[in-house]
Simulated scan of single mutants.
Amino acid sequence: MSNKRCTILIAVASMFLLICMLLLYKTVQENQRYEQFISTQLSESLSAMVTVILANDEILQQYNLSEGENLLPEHATNLCANFTTVSTKYNHLLDAALHLNKVNNADINPVLGNVAQDITFFLARSVIGNDLLGDCNLSETTISLDAVQSQKIAEIRELNNQWSGIVKEYVPEATAIGVSDVDWSDMIHDKMWIQLLEELSGDAGQSRINHFFN
């Protein structure tokens, strides 16, 4: 009777251990799939943000930004749309960093996203001429900059150039047309994307909040 009871206990223990192993394996698989999903989402947002910052820099460096200078309409609409992307992708990355407990509110802030959004509003309404905030659709065939517009766009060029310099330090392979050669998985796993966000956040220019809103 004792041997039978011992056999039953061993069988039950073995079954319990097997169930635990299966549950652990399933949990590991789910975590891996979740991490892969998050990694893919982060990679897409990083790639988009980096690309448009460099594209904006390339566009803005073509101008002397003096009063009366004509801004190509397609450049104005591209800048407007690109700064929208900077705002949305930066905020997505920031939300992910906070959700994953990679940073706290003391380490990083949403200033850059807010400034980029204000720049979009300025370009859409003051430069392109749309009444609807954030509407980057072209409404003018030519855009001649006045003194105020020239000054603000010069400041935008300076600010975006600072962002571009930071981006190039972390992603030297990046270009204005894409970043296909970048190993985003390494950048994410090494937490370099967190360092990039922190530097961009610190260099956003808090005094510029609402400065471009018009």
Results as ranks from 00 to 15, higher is better:
Leu71Val: 00
Asn104Arg: 13
Leu93Ile: 10
Val86Gly: 00
Glu67Lys: 01
Leu100Val: 03
Asn64Val: 00
Leu94Ile: 06
Glu69Leu: 00
Thr85Met: 12
Thr88Leu: 10
Leu100Ile: 07
Thr85Trp: 12
Val111Gly: 03
Asn109Lys: 15
Ala81Arg: 15
Val115Asn: 04
Tyr63Ile: 00
Gly113Tyr: 02
Glu67Thr: 01
Leu94Gln: 04
Tyr90Glu: 03
Leu98Met: 08
Val103Gln: 11
Tyr90Asp: 04
Leu60Ala: 01
Val86Tyr: 00
Asn91Thr: 06
Ile119Val: 15
Leu94Gly: 00
Asn101Leu: 09
Leu112Trp: 04
Asn78Leu: 14
Asn78Met: 14
Lys102Phe: 12
Asn114Trp: 01
Gln61Asp: 09
Asn105His: 15
Leu98Tyr: 07
Asn114Lys: 11
Glu74Asn: 10
Tyr63Asn: 00
Asn82Phe: 14
Cys80Phe: 11
Thr88Lys: 13
Glu74Ala: 08
Val86Phe: 02
Pro110Gln: 13
Ala76Pro: 01
Ala96Met: 12
Leu98Glu: 06
Asn109Ala: 13
Asn91Pro: 03
Val111Pro: 00
Glu69Cys: 05
Gly113Pro: 03
Leu65Val: 02
Val115Leu: 07
Leu112His: 02
Leu94Phe: 10
Asn114Tyr: 08
Thr120Lys: 07
Asn70Glu: 10
Ala96Trp: 07
Asn91Met: 08
Asp107Ala: 14
Leu112Ile: 09
Ala116Cys: 08
Gln117Tyr: 10
Gln61Arg: 12
Asp107His: 12
Leu60Arg: 03
Phe83Ala: 09
Gly68Ile: 00
Asn101Arg: 11
Asn91Trp: 07
Cys80Tyr: 10
Asp118Ala: 07
Pro110Asn: 14
Ser66Leu: 06
Leu112Asp: 06
Val103Tyr: 07
Glu67Leu: 00
Gly68Leu: 02
Thr88His: 09
His99Ser: 13
Glu67Val: 02
Asn104Ile: 11
Thr85Ala: 13
Gln117Glu: 11
Asn114Met: 09
Thr120Val: 08
Val103Ser: 13
Leu65Ala: 01
Ala76Ser: 01
Ile119Lys: 07
Asn78Lys: 14
Ser66Pro: 00
